[in-house]
Amino acid sequence: MLWVLLVGTVTLASPLILAAMGGYVSERGGIVNIALEGKMLAACAATSLVGFATGSVLWSLAAGIASATALAWSHWLLTQKFRVDAVVSGMALNALAFGATNFFDKRFTDPTHIGEMPRLPLGAYQALAFALPLLLAYGVRRTRAGVRLMASGSDPDKARQMGVEPVAVRFWAQTVTGLLCGLAGAMIVTNAGRFVDNMTAGRGFIALAALILGGWRPVQVGLACLFFGFAEALQLVLQGTDLMGAKIPSEAWSSLPYLATIVALAGFAGKSRAPAGLGKV
């Protein structure tokens, strides 16, 4: 059972880490991103549909990443060029992704078709997910791109004074966010075998919560994702088991990460570690 728990945690945490790292890059660059959910969902659908249609792993993964990136670019365009509030934009893109995935799935999936979606091994995603926080923690310090990303999200005006163009930096940041959310979605659908309506089931928001809980620091965010993944796995394992004679509904276990997030936010006390320039142009 312990083994099952471990494997479950790793598998369930991986897409959360991928998405949360996507959120990390976006928010470190200064753009609030509540559309991680939509991007993941779009990637789920695109990966599945193109996978079944072409039978090619490469094309299916490319489609997943492209769909998420298209949404990420829309977010950049709306918030940076049209100056739409990032929360409103994120909301709209989530709705759009939810509707479009349903639309394409219903329109193009042949329910009688029985076959296998071509997939990468889950281990590939897992390896990437677990390496990514370390890579990012290293990368934001040791690369020009990383330093400029942090600068853009910290104070865009001062960054501009130093010759950095935050809006351009953020375009590349959003591209990375799209890429990572695309991978997260591809992994979810790889794990499930095929697309199901709303299959991300709020994981994008959990990833966002992990981002905040981890204080916008990659390794800590990764650990927060592991915690959420563990809670989800625990719920699957403990479903219907007794605890000291009393039957604990599985939902109590499921609520755990949510409640933990609320308690953590309540304990933060004012000073948050959020990028100071979050939302500023």
């Binding site: 040791r142 690369t143 020009r144 330093v147 001062k158 960054a159």
Partner: peptide
């Protein structure tokens, strides 16, 4: 000065020695 960057990052910002530091 950007308070959320390290001293070294502040020193270099906009004039970094290369893509990899």
């Amino acid at each position: 000065i950007l308070p959320q960057l390290t001293c070294l990052q502040n020193l270099m910002l906009g004039a970094e020695p290369g893509a990899w530091i």
